[in-house]
């Protein structure tokens, strides 16, 4: 018996160790190839942004004469001239416009969506399930559908071109995803916690503020980052609804595109400035970013 069990495995695996020995060599060679491929792919993804950074740090003349990769042989050519002339050209105003559009939108979306999501998750009212299906349906409505009607509406209301107009548009189109994400998270809150609060006679708004909102923090953080990045990075809504004096960075940069060749020093530094804050947020909160993406796409 003992011999049988001793021989059986070695017999069964007689081929296996030999194959795995070859397999190990193949793995190691293959592993090396995988490493090389992955490094090349990583470079592929990194190099374009790196190129933008170097171009933004050189003068227009240098950029017109040679590729940014010559920086490795001539590091002395770096200058912040592009950035200083950009700031002198009034780009700072559009930076603050971006902030003035993005921050209120993010706060409003979180607040309004959290209330609706709480109602969908933990309150009872007729037509609740149907209404929520409508929200799911609205998730992918293209914003193009609303450009013309809302422009007409804003004309009548006298807020066409203003920052509140841009903000409200963003909030409305941010809501379906936000309600969907938060409702799905709130539904998972243990019923016992809510029950206990309701038994204690706490009013709903208090339960919302002191129980649901704090427990929902991870989802709210994910949503906040997503919403912030979407609005910060938007160009189309700004293109239609923001006046030149209210335009965010994306629109300000777009207006420079016509003279791409001659404006490249300003354009590249503007583009790089516009992506610094998203990148910082991304690296600081990437965990929430990924979580939000997962929760949002498993529709």
């Amino acid at each position: 018996m003992t011999t049988a069990t001793a021989t059986a495995p070695s017999g069964a695996h007689a081929g296996a160790p030999r194959r795995s020995a070859i397999g190990r060599i193949v793995d190691r060679l293959g592993g090396g190839a995988v490493q090389v491929v992955m490094i090349l792919l990583g470079l592929f993804w990194l190099v374009p942004t790196l190129g933008l950074l170097v171009v933004s740090l050189r003068t227009g003349e240098v950029n017109a004469a040679e590729g940014w990769w010559t920086i490795f042989t001539k590091p002395a050519e770096l200058t912040i001239e592009g950035y200083s002339s950009l700031l002198a050209s009034g780009f700072t105003a559009s930076f603050w416009n971006t902030v003035a559009i993005t921050v209120p939108t993010t706060i409003l979306v979180i607040g309004i969506a959290a209330m609706a999501a709480y109602a969908f998750a933990w309150m009872e009212f007729p037509g609740r399930d149907l209404l929520f299906l409508v929200v799911v349906g609205l998730l992918i409505v293209p914003i193009q559908i609303a450009l013309i009607p809302v422009a007409a509406l804003y004309g009548g209301m006298g807020i066409f071109g203003s920052i509140p107009g841009v903000v409200l548009f963003h909030v409305a189109f941010g809501l379906p995803f936000a309600i969907f994400l938060l409702r799905n998270f709130f539904v998972g809150i243990p019923a016992s916690l809510l029950e206990a609060a309701r038994m204690d006679g706490a009013p709903e708004w208090k339960i919302f503020v002191s129980v649901v909102f704090p427990l929902g923090k991870p989802a709210i953080a994910s949503l906040g980052i997503f919403q912030f990045l979407w609005v910060w990075n938007d160009m189309l809504i700004a293109l239609v609804f923001a006046n030149p004096e209210n335009q965010p960075m994306t629109k300000a940069l777009q207006s420079q595109m016509r003279q791409f060749g001659t404006n490249i020093d300003i354009l590249s530094s503007g583009a790089f400035l516009s992506l610094i804050i998203p990148l910082i947020l991304f690296f600081a909160f990437q965990r929430y970013f990924v979580q939000g993406m997962m929760a949002g796409s498993v529709k």
């Binding site: 190129g51 990075n233 583009a271 990437q286």
Partner: peptide
């Protein structure tokens, strides 16, 4: 992180990057 990073960048900036 490297491959995921462009998700955070605006399509406008991505456009400038690829125009280059």
């Amino acid at each position: 992180l490297i491959v995921f990073m462009p998700m955070a960048v605006s399509l406008m900036a991505a456009g400038v990057i690829f125009r280059l």
